[in-house]
Design a protein around this nucleic acid. Sequence first.
DNA 1: CGACTGGGTTCCTTCAAGCAACTGACTTAG
DNA 2: CTAAGTCAGTTGCTTGAAGGAACCCAGTCG
Lengths: 156, 156
Amino acid sequence: MQRTNFSDMTCSIARTLDVVGEPWSPLIIRDVWVGITRFDDIQRDLGISRKVLTERLQWLVAHGVLRRRQYSDRPPRYEYELTDKGDEFCDVLMAITAWGDRWTAGEAGPPVLVRHRGCGEYVHAEVRCSHCGERLRATDVDHEAGPGALDQPEPK
Amino acid sequence: MQRTNFSDMTCSIARTLDVVGEPWSPLIIRDVWVGITRFDDIQRDLGISRKVLTERLQWLVAHGVLRRRQYSDRPPRYEYELTDKGDEFCDVLMAITAWGDRWTAGEAGPPVLVRHRGCGEYVHAEVRCSHCGERLRATDVDHEAGPGALDQPEPK
DNA sequence: CGACTGGGTTCCTTCAAGCAACTGACTTAG
DNA sequence: CTAAGTCAGTTGCTTGAAGGAACCCAGTCG
């Protein structure tokens, strides 16, 4: 874990990054999401050291993002699956994918296409207002202190 | 920067995390977004070491997420602002905020409320389909190899 | 029994973050 | 003019996390 304790910050972004703020965790969650759920398969797919994968998986399980599911009794064998908490983190992954497709894919184009089962099209994630449904851009919103804020008047 | 070269991976998530995959960069971008744009103000707000802040800022400028803007000629003084690339990363930050509000805020509730200028309500980011506008959840999409994929048949 | 699979664990090295002090450019007040 | 203050870094050292490689254990199967 990072040395700075981001979970102590009064900021949802920082607290989230405390759980998934290094690169491997989002990639592991992504792998589990697309069906790569076993230790060796994840390790092979990501090229991550077994030690770090073990630690990340334990961390993500401890933080309720993943859970282990036994898929074999003899011998006892486990795979990982997303919890609801992990499921909803995929919103973030989709937003990251959309940004990455736009700014890091270069000439080759996106490595992965996202097809929406509902409409059948290749789509990307759009961030929209939960109330009126309009596109939410950086300049469309104001930040105000919420109930969980400290007594600081400044937005964080 | 991390030792693993995530930019070499054929994966938009990994390439994005190569640029912003440690906790400080998203927090710095968030600060600049909400108007905390000067070195000392960012440093004070985040409690980050001056050394790391310098490095992160230089990195983000080099990767086109931030740019420096001179706000004083005598003495020469700079502040940081979002590029278009950085602007669009705020979509990711809004998705992170929504997830964090839901899963990390606890009893206190969200520290920051997001008010949509368009409809005036306190809202959160919803990830929706760019084509039909429906909510996009983890189980609503399929991943398929795209033009930038290697010759692997597996989704990444 | 040996080979293999699955899922780790251990040890050592390297690198990035944290801390504290320092630096340089510039301005302003006494 | 000098000293103090602001701004934006830079430097040196320590510490913790990641990477790499080897190793380990439990269990199954031929």
